[in-house]
């Protein structure tokens, strides 16, 4: 299966409560908490679409969309 490509990394700022779990456990240190303590993707190019951030987000605020076959 080819390397999965990121289509879109969605963070619902109004749901995120700034717990920092996604920031801590992202293998690519893609995410950081901004001055409002909200999670923001600052190094999206390092995202490997592992979805750890999405799956561990207590606020269900993150959604990682990957390229499907018809998305080229």
């Amino acid at each position: 299966m080819g390397k999965v490509k990121l289509k879109e990394h969605i963070i619902r700022r109004d749901w995120c409560k700034g717990c920092g779990i996604c920031v801590e456990f992202c293998p690519g240190t893609v995410l950081e908490l901004d001055e409002m303590d909200r999670s923001v993707a600052v190094r999206l190019e390092d995202c490997i679409c592992c979805k750890l951030c999405e799956n561990r987000c207590p606020d269900l605020a993150i959604e990682v969309l990957t390229m499907g076959p018809d998305d080229e």
Partner: peptide, 25 residues
């Protein structure tokens, strides 16, 4: 999973970092 939640009630009431949201997900 967005289709399984009652979106109008989010953000939920659990504290920041509470594990319950992870269990829900």
């Amino acid at each position: 999973i967005k289709d399984y939640i009652r979106e109008r009630y989010f953000p939920h009431l659990w504290c920041s970092g509470c594990g319950h949201g992870i269990v829900l997900g």
